[in-house]
Design a binder for these strands. Structure first.
Lengths: 261, 261
DNA sequence: CAGTGGTCTAGACCACACT
DNA sequence: GTGTGGTCTAGACCACTGC
């Protein structure tokens, strides 16, 4: 049997009706779920601190250790950031520390700091109807409105990355080329502050490809130069896909770095 | 100040002389270090179970909770595997479950199970002197003996991966082309059972490249077909590099999959 | 100094696997 | 049933931050 929570705060465990799986979930998982709900509902905003462990323990009527374990898991998923002596904070893509969390391209010599900040140029930005492929990736219906953006990232004024990206129209209502061009900083930080959309994780499919003419020109590459194709689907809370992005990376001066554990 | 361990088992915390950093390390980190030493010394071998938490707690004279936290960290680094009700086991590359832990290439349709087991063909295997580049990667001196292997991996009899790899001569004394060809299973599993070398983590640098003639031929690819170049350095305990591997992957039927958190 | 997260303990009980 | 890892609690104390 399962321990059920009695909470002043939320309606606790759902269904529980499936006979096949007893679906035992430990207390700290349920607490984790409740904290997740509060994050999702923006009860605490990116960059802000959440209540202390003791406060949360009192609120959920559990011990501090149980809250701690819930927070530990959220912190290891980079949803929260613990800072000893200060508190626990909602993670944000705006912090310098984790600015390029999803960008694994690094220069062959030196690091991102050597190169200084990226230059961002919006090449194109328009609304259109989702193709079947894009609809599938974003869990929309074919024909739904999506925002399509093409941009070039340069490091030390050398064009290095060309990206096409597609965003679902509804959550990003009001996003324009001007808005993007006027914002200097990580795109995911803009999504957070302006649209309340926080990217939590992503999946990438990587291939070696030969670019077409327009791609070659934007990256100023000669013919027959292969590029790294990086197709990314980024997810917000609840595993909801919120962005499809196709990047083309120069890998003669940079490489995609991956650590395997 | 630091809590110092009094142990029947090992000489506990080193130096402690540096004034700059007080170098506080919690008890469970010290326990983690001791367990790591036992792993390194092959006190417990890959696939075997280690003593229970209670036994280790008694042995190190700490509480079960402290041992638990040490094991938790080792388990999250994939050095140990916990199995509820059975025990804690030394991780191994031989288990089906984690067979291709470092191989992130997956077919565009289906998964690795769809394709069945890989076919491995040893193209070349010889001993030679390390170039400066290879010596640097393997933390050897230029001119030290290294073993160089070239092989082709095929899935459903389609050549998909060409790999060149270099191993330090000393730890892999006695490894021959025959030995490799006669072994059917993951190479890292052979390293474990035959040479006591367990790969613990790896770093990869990924690029898009055009293959040369011999690479093209071994993978049966037409000219001007880009390939994914995956350069990997694999480390054993203590961050000691034990393998340099350059893979060339077909990415027209497969892709390199990466999950970002 | 008070408040926060981090460590450590001791004990109770639960879920799971084997016998 | 016995032994394993997994959860939960309560309380003490430590390390870090900022007032």
């Amino acid at each position: 049997m399962n321990t059920t929570l009695t909470l002043t705060d939320a309606p606790a465990a759902a269904a529980e009706s499936q006979a096949a799986t007893p679906a035992f979930s430990p207390l700290y998982q349920q607490i984790k779920g409740l904290i997740l709900q509060s994050l999702q509902a923006s009860e605490w905003k990116p960059g802000e601190s959440i209540p202390s462990e003791m406060e949360l323990a009192a609120r959920y009527r559990v011990s501090q250790g149980t809250v701690r374990k819930a927070i530990d898991e959220l912190a290891s998923g980079h949803l929260l950031i613990r800072k000893q002596g200060k508190g626990t904070f909602v993670a944000t893509h705006a912090e310098h520390q984790v600015q390029y969390r999803f960008l694994k391209l690094v220069p062959d010599q030196g690091d991102l700091n050597t190169e200084g900040p990226a230059q961002r140029e919006i090449v194109d930005c328009k609304r259109l109807r989702a193709t079947a492929e894009i609809a599938r990736a974003l869990a929309l219906r074919s024909g739904d409105t999506v925002l399509q953006v093409r941009r070039v990232l340069s490091f030390a004024n050398v064009p290095t990355i060309l990206e096409d990206l597609w965003l679902p129209g509804t959550p990003f209502k009001g996003l324009t080329a001007e808005r993007l061009a006027g914002y200097h900083g990580p795109m995911y930080a803009l999504f957070e502050t302006e649209f309340g959309v926080r990217m939590v994780r992503a999946e990438e499919k990587i291939r070696a490809v030969l670019p077409d003419k327009s791609q070659r020109e934007l990256l100023q590459r000669p013919a027959n130069t292969p590029l790294l194709s990086v197709e990314r689907i980024a997810y917000t809370y609840n595993d909801t896909p919120m962005e499809l992005r196709r990047g083309f990376y120069r890998t003669d001066t940079h490489h995609y770095r991956n650590d395997l554990n």
